[in-house]
Simulated scan of single mutants.
Amino acid sequence: MTKNQNTTREDISIKLTKISLIILFLTSMALMGIGSWIVTQVVEFPSPFFEGTLRFGILLGSGYLLGCLALACIIHLYQLLTRIGEGQVFIAQNVQYLRYLGWEVGLVALISLFLGLTAYLPMLLIAVSCSLLTLIIRVIRNAFGKAIELQEQVDYTI
């Protein structure tokens, strides 16, 4: 049998997700490339607190910071997915990458909360969404961590 005959639905799903992550990475890079234009469009809407040049600078700087966090998330997701595709599911490195993802998304939530309260109100929606996503990632990370503990206990019992 050739490798193509052994391809499962999960293998196809992993490949499609990897392609999606690559497209998202490239899109994120493109958006960072036109960051000042995007901020120029956003600045036209009213602000809860900051105005003028200060607001533009805060939005632009925070946007680049959020872009870098997005790239880090995409890279960690890609690495995590690669290991899972290789059959390395319940390993300590995956728990570490899930921890990184939790911190990265949590930072996005905090930055978005700051931006929503001071410079661009709709960012509060991102803050709420990322807060929920952070908790979901933490639950998955904890499940992976417990699975590794159980796996180690079983290995030592035999």
Rank of each mutant, 00 (worst) to 15 (best):
M1T: 11
K3A: 12
K3Y: 12
K3L: 14
N4F: 11
N4E: 14
N6Y: 09
N6V: 05
T8L: 09
R9F: 13
I12Q: 04
S13Y: 07
I14K: 02
I14F: 06
K15S: 10
K18D: 02
K18N: 06
L21H: 02
L21E: 00
L21K: 02
L21T: 01
I22Y: 00
I22H: 00
I22F: 05
I23R: 00
L24I: 11
T27S: 11
S28G: 15
S28Y: 02
S28V: 04
A30W: 14
A30M: 10
L31G: 07
G33S: 04
I34Q: 08
I34Y: 08
G35D: 07
G35T: 05
W37L: 14
V39M: 05
V39D: 01
T40L: 10
T40D: 15
Q41R: 12
Q41L: 14
V43G: 01
V43F: 05
E44Q: 14
E44I: 12
E44Y: 09
P46Q: 02
P46S: 07
S47A: 13
P48I: 07
F50I: 01
F50Y: 15
E51A: 02
F56Q: 08
F56L: 09
F56C: 00
F56Y: 13
G57Y: 13
I58H: 03
I58L: 15
I58E: 01
L59G: 02
G61A: 14
S62M: 14
S62I: 01
Y64C: 00
Y64M: 13
G67E: 04
C68H: 06
L69G: 01
A72V: 08
I74W: 00
I74H: 02
I74V: 09
I75A: 10
H76N: 14
L77E: 07
L77W: 08
Y78T: 08
Q79M: 11
L80M: 12
L80V: 03
T82N: 12
R83N: 13
I84R: 00
I84A: 07
G85C: 06
G87F: 10
Q88F: 12
V89C: 04
I91W: 05
I91C: 09
A92T: 12
A92E: 15
Y97H: 11
L98Q: 05
R99S: 13
L101I: 11
W103F: 11
E104D: 09
V105R: 05
V105L: 03
L107F: 14
L107W: 13
A109N: 04
L110D: 01
I111F: 07
I111R: 03
S112R: 06
L115G: 01
T118Y: 06
T118E: 03
Y120P: 02
Y120G: 00
L121M: 09
P122H: 04
L124G: 07
C130T: 11
C130N: 09
I137A: 06
R138G: 00
R138T: 08
R138N: 06
V139S: 05
V139M: 10
I140M: 10
I140E: 07
I140F: 11
N142P: 02
A143D: 11
F144E: 06
F144T: 02
G145W: 04
K146E: 15
K146Q: 15
K146L: 14
K146R: 13
A147S: 14
A147R: 11
E149H: 10
E149R: 14
E149Q: 13
L150H: 10
Q151E: 14
Q151Y: 10
E152V: 10
Q153L: 15
V154W: 10
D155H: 12
Y156I: 14
T157H: 10
